[in-house]
Design a binder for these strands. Sequence first.
DNA 1: CGTCAATAGTAGGACATCCTAGTATCTCGC
DNA 2: GCGAGATACTAGGATGTCCTACTATTGACG
Lengths: 168, 168
Amino acid sequence: MPPQQPLPYDPVAEARRQWAAHGWSQAAGGMAAVTSLMRAHQIVLARVEAVLRPLGVTFARYEVLMLLHFSRSDALPMTIIGARLQVHPTSVTNAVDRLERAGLVARRPHPSDGRTTLVSLTDDGRRLALDATDRLNAAVFRAPGMPDGDLAVLVDVLAGLRRDAGDF
Amino acid sequence: MPPQQPLPYDPVAEARRQWAAHGWSQAAGGMAAVTSLMRAHQIVLARVEAVLRPLGVTFARYEVLMLLHFSRSDALPMTIIGARLQVHPTSVTNAVDRLERAGLVARRPHPSDGRTTLVSLTDDGRRLALDATDRLNAAVFRAPGMPDGDLAVLVDVLAGLRRDAGDF
DNA sequence: CGTCAATAGTAGGACATCCTAGTATCTCGC
DNA sequence: GCGAGATACTAGGATGTCCTACTATTGACG
């Protein structure tokens, strides 16, 4: 929904020109990359959320469901979920709260460690996760709005950034 | 914050393996791209916000300041700001509210169109925008965590996505 | 075995973003 | 002119993310 009417020029390219004109050429590339990334994230997230909205979940919660679905063990501690999804512990609490209220996951105390809470999928949760995946695959992941070659390059370049940031 | 300890593997690559193992190979590339993008956004935004936090502004508000700084005219209507930054009108209201409260921008009614609100930089706002730019250039934009070549490729690929989404 | 640091999770608060809805103003056509 | 539709902005609500701070439990060390 952002621009009802497309802009007559690329705002990122325009910003890059401004950077160069102000003597910040050395930083123009980085600025352009950061700005592009912000906007691309916004576009992609909007597409994904539009697909998931009818199912009553968001992408953040969908990621929790899929992580549990792929997990070998029947349940995962909150901490592990946060580490795998690379989000703050409080974000995990938030997502699991809502998923639990919707009956898609269940909380259970760890049998031997009183600090730990284990989270597991319910049958409804697993069903919804698979349904959501089918829809996302069809509507977004198989039609990401760019050629396959670009897709691979994008993933590679971003993997470098993530590695550099200490993700893995 | 995210991972205190790096994961022993790339979570995106792991997800891609799971996608292939479940017969969703056609969608694996798109899934990997979307997931990478989400995480990269999170990483970059965190770096930027860390630099801006001491100045009391966020990246969203910084973008408003710079747009006004680069603008030919002395003031811009809210709508134009939203169109240029590609965000929802209510997001502009939010950002301008906070900038105005901080004394960095001023609201003024449009002389001939009673519906329109014009936003202009104050002296403090312009000073802060330039200070923030110096810091961002030094700490983030000139050291984006990837080679220059990757930077250019990233911007190009994302420009394709943005164009496809109707941004410009 | 007792204190103390580390770990797990949650509560409350700040922000940004979007959506829906509502008010005010302008424009254009009859 | 006058009324219907378009346009500009804001209010209120939902979500996600992070930060700081707090509680509870564990584990390690003297």
